[in-house]
C-alpha cells in the first residue's frame, strides 16, 4: 500500500479546484499540514473496502407538495449583494465571455 501523499503541485491544483487563492507561505504550510494529516488518516485504509457498504433500514426523503409557498426574504436582495444593479447581482465578467458567450454546467 503506497502512502497517501500530497505534492505541492497537486495541492495547487486542488486549491484551484476549490477557488482558493493561497499565498506562497500558505501553500507551503498547507502542503506540510496536509501531508501530516493524510498520514494520520492512513489508518482508515485498514478497513476492508469490501466491507458491506449497504445501509440497513434507510429513511426515505420526504416529499413536499408542488405548491408555491416559499420562506420569504425579510430584507431586499440589494442589501445582501456586494454589487446590485437594476435587479441583478453583478460581477466582473468572465474573460472568455467577450469572445464566446458559452454557458457551462447543467
Amino acid at each position: 500500500m503506497t502512502a497517501m501523499a500530497i505534492e505541492r503541485s497537486y495541492l495547487e491544483k486542488i486549491a484551484e479546484l476549490a477557488r482558493l487563492e493561497l499565498s506562497e507561505e500558505e501553500a507551503t504550510r498547507l502542503t506540510r499540514d496536509c501531508q501530516a494529516i493524510l498520514e494520520y488518516f492512513e489508518a482508515i485504509r485498514q478497513i476492508d473496502s469490501e466491507a458491506d457498504a449497504s445501509e440497513g433500514v434507510e429513511r426515505s426523503a420526504p416529499l413536499r407538495q408542488d405548491i408555491v409557498d416559499c420562506d420569504p426574504l425579510e430584507d431586499p436582495l440589494r442589501d445582501l449583494a456586494p454589487l446590485w444593479r437594476d435587479g441583478y447581482f453583478v460581477l466582473p465578467r468572465l474573460p472568455a465571455m467577450d469572445a464566446d458567450g458559452f454557458e457551462d454546467g447543467s
Binding site: 444593479r85 441583478y88 460581477l91 466582473p92 465571455m97 454546467g105
Partner: peptide, 17 residues
C-alpha cells in the same frame, strides 16, 4: 436548473438572474 448569467446586460460585467 442553474440561474442565468447575462453577459450583454452591462459592459464588462456579468449580470446574474
Amino acid at each position: 436548473d442553474s440561474g442565468k448569467s447575462l453577459h450583454d446586460r452591462f459592459p464588462r460585467e456579468t449580470a446574474v438572474d
